[in-house]
Amino acid sequence: MEAQLEQIREQQKESWNKFSAGWKKWDGLTMNFLQPMGDAIVDHLNPRNGEVVLDVAAGTGEPGLTIAARLRGGRVVITDLADDMLVIARENAARRGITNIETRACDVSELPFADNYFDAISCRFGFMFFPDMTMAAAEIYRVLKPGGKVAAAVWGGPEKNFWVTAIMGAINRKLELSPPPSGAPGMFRCAKEGLMADLFSQAGFKNVAQQEVSGQLNCQTVDVYWDMMTEIAAPVVAGLSKADEATQAEIKAEVYQAVRHKYPQGDILIDSGALVISGEK
């Protein structure tokens, strides 16, 4: 891997480990939010008893744990770049009585598995952050058995994801931050129409399909929204760290105003839009 890509990977590993405590705190809310995308992935994979499944960039364990709970005589290997996130995944598995999983901290671009090893592979909201998506897709293809299925979720465009733009928009406006370079890791990196389908096809996958999936972030109050986003979202925390106390207060006030304007009744239930891309080897 090129030195620049290694640097991005190490920065991401440090960031995900740093925010693992926040993800543990908000796991119930975030997993409910992301469940429709995970369910769509599971539907595409349709895992069968006895299969061995890989869940890439699984964070606190989903959708790998849901898949494992459905399998009889099979198992799921749950991977992530950050060891501290996998600690939470193991805790979640133990709490739910799921024993047919193992965890492995590794980089998707250098998967420590043999060729043609897995029956199915899932990846929920990982591709946007992979330093080299082409390399990641090639590695996923390599370790998937012929005839095996893959399904991945990525975020749709900013116009469908107010839960991101409400806070990041305010930060970018107040601090006049430059947009990231084209193709750099980020929330909406994979939203361009056809990008992920082309990536999968170029990697060698066939029968590639794309599905739009919506979800809802049920914060209930704007305070919960603000607290959650400032405790789990690395770009938000990084942006706020560049602002002085007065500017941070202005950003917070702008976010509260935007959210309350959009949800005047006070029930903060924010829609989201994602894409689920599937294929076969």
Rank of each mutant, 00 (worst) to 15 (best):
L5M: 12
E6P: 11
E6H: 15
E10R: 12
W16S: 14
S20Q: 10
K25R: 14
F33D: 06
F33S: 06
L34P: 03
P36A: 02
M37I: 06
G38T: 02
I41E: 05
L45Q: 01
N49K: 13
E51G: 06
V53P: 00
L54T: 03
T66C: 06
I67Q: 02
V77K: 07
T79D: 07
D80Q: 12
D83N: 12
M85S: 11
A94Q: 15
R96K: 15
G97Y: 07
R104H: 13
C106F: 01
V108I: 14
F113N: 01
D119H: 13
F125C: 01
F125A: 06
F127Q: 04
F129Q: 04
F130P: 11
P131L: 00
P131H: 00
M133Y: 02
A138P: 00
E139V: 00
V143G: 02
K145L: 09
P146C: 11
G147F: 06
V154M: 07
P158I: 04
V164L: 06
I167Q: 13
I167F: 10
I171F: 07
K174V: 12
L175A: 14
P179I: 07
P181I: 02
P181W: 09
S182I: 12
R189S: 01
R189G: 00
R189F: 04
C190Y: 04
M196A: 04
D198T: 15
L199H: 08
K206M: 09
Q210W: 03
Q211E: 15
E212T: 09
S214A: 10
C219Y: 13
Q220H: 15
D223R: 07
Y225L: 05
Y225T: 04
A234T: 15
V237T: 08
S241A: 15
T247I: 11
T247K: 11
A249C: 06
E250M: 12
A253C: 05
V255Q: 01
Q257G: 00
R260Q: 14
G266S: 13
S272Q: 10
E280T: 12
